[in-house]
Amino acid sequence: MAQPTAPDPRATLRGGLPDRYLTPADIASMFGVPIETVYQWRKKRTGPPGFRIGKHLRYDPTDVRAYVTGLKNSATAA
């Protein structure tokens, strides 16, 4: 019997975000960028807003969806 495989995180982004806080690795995988890019976005305040839980960086799926929607809207307005 075949082992179940984890869904592609990018497909998850298209079909609806998971019901949990996302890690920087999740964000990198969803957007197809290196994890270093995610940390640079945070440093420059250009990517989806993240927050800290102790020493761990997390992203709210609702904020990520709003960020993507904002990108789409600004692209169509340009």
Rank of each mutant, 00 (worst) to 15 (best):
residue 12 T to Y: 00
residue 17 L to V: 08
residue 67 Y to A: 04
residue 4 P to V: 09
residue 38 V to L: 03
residue 57 L to S: 00
residue 59 Y to T: 02
residue 77 A to V: 15
residue 57 L to V: 15
residue 34 P to A: 01
residue 11 A to T: 12
residue 18 P to Y: 02
residue 1 M to E: 07
residue 18 P to H: 06
residue 31 F to T: 04
residue 20 R to C: 12
residue 38 V to R: 01
residue 8 D to P: 13
residue 6 A to L: 11
residue 21 Y to L: 10
residue 70 G to M: 06
residue 46 T to L: 10
residue 35 I to C: 00
residue 35 I to Y: 01
residue 61 P to N: 09
residue 64 V to F: 07
residue 17 L to N: 05
residue 78 A to D: 08
residue 35 I to L: 06
residue 43 K to W: 07
residue 39 Y to E: 03
residue 29 S to Y: 01
residue 2 A to C: 03
residue 52 R to W: 11
residue 19 D to P: 01
residue 78 A to W: 03
residue 17 L to T: 04
residue 24 P to T: 15
residue 27 I to H: 11
residue 50 G to D: 06
residue 25 A to R: 12
residue 72 K to V: 15
residue 75 A to C: 09
residue 57 L to C: 09
residue 42 R to P: 00
residue 63 D to L: 05
residue 77 A to P: 01
residue 57 L to T: 13
residue 66 A to E: 14
residue 53 I to G: 02
residue 21 Y to R: 08
residue 6 A to V: 05
residue 14 R to L: 04
residue 28 A to C: 05
residue 75 A to V: 14
residue 8 D to V: 14
residue 11 A to K: 15
residue 49 P to A: 10
residue 53 I to N: 05
residue 60 D to I: 07
residue 50 G to H: 06
residue 26 D to Y: 02
residue 16 G to E: 02
residue 37 T to A: 11
residue 12 T to M: 02
residue 49 P to V: 13
residue 16 G to A: 03
residue 59 Y to W: 04
residue 8 D to Q: 15
residue 58 R to P: 10
residue 10 R to N: 08
residue 54 G to V: 14
residue 51 F to C: 07
residue 41 W to V: 05
residue 11 A to I: 13
residue 68 V to P: 06
residue 19 D to E: 12
residue 54 G to E: 02
residue 28 A to W: 03
residue 55 K to T: 13
residue 78 A to Q: 13
residue 38 V to M: 00
residue 54 G to D: 06
residue 10 R to S: 14
residue 39 Y to H: 14
residue 73 N to E: 15
residue 14 R to G: 00
residue 38 V to E: 03
residue 33 V to P: 04
residue 41 W to L: 09
residue 5 T to M: 10
residue 53 I to K: 08
residue 45 R to Y: 01
residue 61 P to S: 08
residue 26 D to L: 06
residue 29 S to W: 01
residue 32 G to C: 11
residue 7 P to M: 11
residue 26 D to S: 05
residue 37 T to W: 02
residue 46 T to V: 06
residue 32 G to M: 09
residue 10 R to M: 02
